Computed example of a mutant assay.
Amino acid sequence: MAFDQISLKGRALRLLAGREHSRAELQRKLSAHETEPGELAQALDELEAKGFINEQRVLESVLHRRSARLGASRVRQELQAKGLDPQAVAEAVAGLQGSEEARAREVWRKRFAAPPADAAERAKQMRFLLTRGFGAEVVRRVVRGVPLDDSEG
């Protein structure tokens, strides 16, 4: 059977074999292959009923894969792009906030061996962390080398 003749359900299963996908992602990726209206929705309904599509697993998968290297705002962006429930995304991101500074320190430590020597280096290090979705105040504290202290703020 040629790849062109694979059913929508088969295509969805092939995608799901690689990693967890949300229903919205599968809808977006497979809509071009739908030959009859409603065919894709029916296939996705069947897969969801059998537990192949599970939004909670998608959420946990993204958190597990990405939270060590990215800040809460970037993780939120990725989860929203997958079309997940906004309430579930908000709860997951709120759980990341407590470890934001520690995660930012670890990302910074792996990339830069020493504190910035001058303003240009400081800006470079700050940009690096900001583009990974860490908050501005956390980035300032990490790059300045202010020790992690639970009694503050």
Rank of each mutant, 00 (worst) to 15 (best):
R66G: 08
L8Q: 06
E34H: 15
A68Q: 13
T131Y: 04
L148G: 13
G10D: 02
G51L: 13
S31I: 06
V62A: 09
W108D: 10
G38W: 15
S31K: 13
H33W: 11
F112T: 07
L8C: 07
E78S: 03
R23D: 01
Q42A: 15
R57P: 12
E48N: 09
N54E: 12
R141H: 07
R66F: 14
A88C: 08
A113G: 12
L130A: 08
S67L: 03
L8A: 07
R132N: 01
R127S: 07
S61E: 14
R105G: 06
P116F: 05
I6E: 01
D118P: 00
R69N: 11
A136W: 00
L63A: 06
D150R: 12
K9G: 11
A113F: 04
E39N: 10
Q56H: 12
A136M: 01
V75K: 00
G10T: 05
V138Y: 12
Q97E: 05
A41Q: 11
F3L: 08
A102L: 07
R122H: 02
Q87C: 02
L44P: 02
G51M: 12
D85Y: 14
G38H: 15
L26K: 11
E25A: 11
L130T: 04
K9M: 12
A43T: 13
L79T: 08
E91W: 00
L44Q: 09
T131L: 04
V58H: 12
V143A: 10
R69D: 14
Q77A: 13
Q5A: 10
E46M: 11
E46R: 11
V138P: 03
E100M: 01
V146L: 10
V142K: 11
E60A: 13
R14G: 01
L79S: 06
V138M: 10
R65D: 11
A24L: 04
M126L: 04
V62Y: 13
L130S: 06
S151Q: 14
L84P: 15
N54K: 14
A24I: 02
P115C: 01
R122S: 04
E91S: 08
S22M: 12
V93Y: 00
E48W: 07
G38C: 13
R65F: 14
D4F: 12
L44D: 04
P86F: 04
Q80I: 07
E101K: 00
V58W: 08
N54H: 09
P86D: 03
K29I: 03
S67W: 06
A32S: 07
D4P: 02
P115T: 03
G153F: 05
A104T: 04
A43S: 13
A90Q: 09
A136Q: 01
L63H: 09
A43I: 12
V62F: 14
